[in-house]
């Protein structure tokens, strides 16, 4: 139970002190942001979740980012819907979308949903700026932040608990 409560905090600490590069963390945050925005019952969300887990990116940062953006969706949905619907209703794109939709697994993708399309487009649109922003931020604050965090016993406990839980699982 305590593991469930402390998992986000531990993930944040792990993301910061892990040996991953800032690039890996930034990509993880970007993938997590898109995953967080997307409706989860679609194949698109499954693909991004698989990518987050399969690629060598910082999963902890990705999951934290996904959680954060998922919390924002109630406020962002009108915007995502408006963007997605505008694109989906564009007459010039109808035949392309119809072709895509008619492909095997097309309906399972969920891109015909206005929020899914809006999430994908907004996510892709903010991906690179977010990547750059996260990376530059990490480059600047990460060394100081790591040394500051490691000074505190609680951080070490959290990391130790993480290691212990992994061992316990084994």
């Amino acid at each position: 139970m305590s593991d469930w409560y402390f998992a986000p905090l531990r993930a944040t600490v792990a993301a910061l002190v892990a040996h991953d590069s800032t690039r890996q963390i930034a990509v993880g945050v970007v993938l997590g942001a898109i995953l967080g925005l997307l409706p989860k019952a679609t194949l698109l969300a499954a693909i991004f979740a698989f990518a987050l887990a399969a690629f060598r990116v910082n999963r902890a940062a990705g999951l934290a980012s996904a959680g954060f953006f998922a919390m924002l969706t109630p406020w962002l949905d009108p915007l995502l819907h408006a963007v997605g619907f505008r694109v989906l209703a564009a007459p010039s794109l109808q035949s392309s979308f119809a072709w895509l939709y008619d492909l095997p697994l097309g309906p399972w993708m969920g891109f015909h949903n206005s929020v899914a399309m809006g999430s994908l487009l907004v996510g892709l649109y903010i991906a690179y700026p977010l990547y750059l922003a996260v990376r530059s931020l990490l480059d600047r604050v990460r060394p100081r932040l790591v040394s500051w965090v490691m000074k505190y016993r609680v951080a070490r406990v959290l990391l130790g608990a993480d290691v212990a839980s992994r061992w316990g699982a084994l």
Binding site: P39, F85, L88, A89, Q94, S95, Y101, N113, S114
Partner: peptide, 11 residues
Amino acid sequence: SRGVDVQFLGL
């Protein structure tokens, strides 16, 4: 449940 599902023309 979130947004709307759009039926594409010509499909």
